[in-house]
Write a protein that binds this DNA or RNA. Structure first.
Lengths: 246, 246
DNA sequence: CGTCGGCTTGAGGGAAATCAAACGATGTGG
DNA sequence: CCACATCGTTTGATTTCCCTCAAGCCGACG
């Protein structure tokens, strides 16, 4: 559940402290809360004095436009810290919503701030989260701004497979993807209809298949070559490792 | 040059400390460096142990895909801190490039880290920057994922007008926009050709005109109503203030 | 004076959206 | 237990927004 080797981090010597910080944080967040799929951990425009650490399940940041268009801005997996930004910017225009049933542990912002001040490892852990969030947002911007539908879908699969792999939640050739095609569309800036068509093409060309919630990657090399242009260095490295193994 | 009232910040009582932190930071960054338009402050994939505070000019984060497609991920204006993330993730896949001639002041990451530990106001200043960067990235994701060309251009203009206004670099009805149409396209995920067409339409309908580098906003209400769906709360508030005044 | 970068406009094409409808699984209440 | 509603997926037909390709224009600059 904690950052592990291979994670995007340029100074491996920090890894131990990062884990230490995470462990310490978890220990000081005994209170947990459970949510059902679709529930809001924080509603849009709602004030929140709490920072969450996702323990199980999937969360996302979403924004719904006045006319109903919807965008999933980021996807959070177990281990991620959510809501650090709200320490300064509150309420945020975005909601934090459950994609699956989820459990989170809680900490008051003020308490976390204090911990960060007192303990360098916790500070490192928080910094790493902010840094990682930003990396992912950059990648989203690249994909949405310059990627076509195929590239967006392929890179999403590569990215999620890598993140889930770090958590021990993926096998060599697949993982569980608890998103509806509508939600995939909302994440990638596409319509359901088009997501469906792209997935069909990928299935028919034997690259990946999505049966229900189960993703199976049949041809890593092909998937990587589709996603490649919009991957960042870290993702590309991870994808190549996969390709090599297959 | 420092964060001022009206800035996206939910606790106005922090404003003074924020300014204090910024002032302190500036005082400990006596060394400055000048760059020409187009020059790279940090090249893509280059290691950097330095954090920059932009003093004058415009910078941007960019990524160029292997096949030449280019995306401007973020635009930085005077007062912004750039490169904080590189403390943990280094080198980054993105470059930091000058959109205009620019001067920056420098500080070593390690020295900044120490300052942050020692001084709460500086820590606040750094946190605020991270928070603000993320807010802007969220907005980019919304615009790129769900906005059409008109909305993207209108919201860019509203956003820049607001940020420049805070810096005293905009008048009530306009500002200087030192971007080529190509760069606007790279920022908004559009082609030059299309940017040009949208700008023409906006000009012909008497909403805004871009003559050379000078933006003049003729009809705030119209611009706001185009941009509105993809604006966040803060931008919307700012745009309404403008509309009311005009 | 020629060239180069940026702006502008036209014609045509294509990727993805929209509109519309059917299908299968799941659930549920009479 | 079956009729029926709901939710997600799938597919077809049509439209539209934006891209691509192409070329002309203008001002700056050597």
């Amino acid at each position: 559940m904690t950052p592990s080797p291979g994670y995007p981090l340029h100074r491996p010597e920090l890894l131990d402290r990062l884990r230490e910080g995470d462990a310490l944080l978890v220990r000081t967040m005994p209170e947990t809360k459970a949510f059902g799929a679709g529930e809001h951990v924080i509603a849009a425009e709602e004030r929140s004095e709490t920072v969450y650490r996702l323990q199980t399940g999937w969360l996302c940041r979403t924004r719904t436009l006045p006319d109903g268009r919807r965008q999933i801005i980021a996807i959070f997996l177990p281990g991620d810290l959510c809501g650090v930004r709200s320490m300064l910017l509150n309420p945020q225009p975005e909601g934090l919503q459950c994609l699956t049933p989820a459990t989170v542990s809680l900490i008051e912002q003020s308490r976390l701030a204090e911990l960060v001040r007192m303990n360098g490892s916790v500070a490192l852990r928080v910094m790493w989260q902010l840094s990682e969030d930003e990396r992912r947002l950059h990648n989203s911007v690249i994909g949405l701004g310059r990627g076509n539908a195929d590239e967006r879908i392929a890179s999403m699969l590569v990215d999620l497979r890598e993140r889930l792999g770090q958590l021990g939640l993926a096998t060599d050739d697949g993982f569980r993807l608890p998103l509806t095609q509508q939600q995939i569309g909302d994440y990638l800036g596409l319509t359901v209809v088009h997501v469906n068509r792209v997935l069909r093409r990928l299935r028919e060309s034997g690259v990946v298949s999505l049966a229900g919630k189960a993703v199976t990657i049949h041809d890593w090399a092909a998937l990587e070559s589709i996603a490649n242009p919009v991957l960042d260095v870290f993702e590309r490295r991870a994808a190549r490792r996969r390709t090599a193994r297959a």
